[in-house]
Simulated scan of single mutants.
Amino acid sequence: MIKHIVMWKLKDYAEGNDKQFNANEIKIRLEALKDKISEIGKIEVGINNNPANSYDVVLYSEFESYENLNIYQSHPSHIEVAAFVGAVKVDRTCVDYEA
Results as ranks from 00 to 15, higher is better:
Asp35Gly: 08
Ile28Asn: 12
Ile40Met: 04
Glu31Val: 08
Ile26Gln: 04
Leu33Arg: 00
Pro51Glu: 10
Leu33His: 00
Leu33Met: 01
Gly41His: 15
Asp35Val: 04
Lys34Phe: 05
Asn53Gly: 00
Leu33Ser: 00
Ile43Gln: 07
Leu30Val: 11
Ser54Cys: 07
Asn50Val: 11
Glu44Lys: 15
Pro51Trp: 02
Glu25Ile: 01
Glu39Phe: 09
Val57Ile: 09
Ser54Val: 04
Glu31Pro: 08
Tyr55Pro: 01
Ile43Asp: 02
Lys42Leu: 13
Lys36Ile: 08
Asn48Lys: 03
Glu39Leu: 04
Asn50Asp: 15
Phe21Lys: 12
Lys42Ser: 13
Ile37His: 04
Val45His: 09
Glu39Ala: 14
Pro51His: 02
Glu39Ile: 11
Pro51Phe: 05
Asn50Lys: 08
Ala23Cys: 08
Ile47Tyr: 11
Ala52Tyr: 07
Asp35Thr: 15
Ile28His: 12
Lys34Asp: 04
Phe21Trp: 07
Arg29Thr: 11
Ile40Asn: 00
Lys34Arg: 06
Gly46Tyr: 01
Val57Leu: 04
Asn53Leu: 12
Asn22His: 03
Ser38Ala: 10
Ile40Tyr: 06
Asn49Arg: 13
Lys27Pro: 05
Ala52Arg: 14
Asn22Arg: 09
Pro51Thr: 09
Leu33Val: 05
Glu31Trp: 11
Asn48Ala: 08
Asn22Cys: 03
Asn22Gly: 03
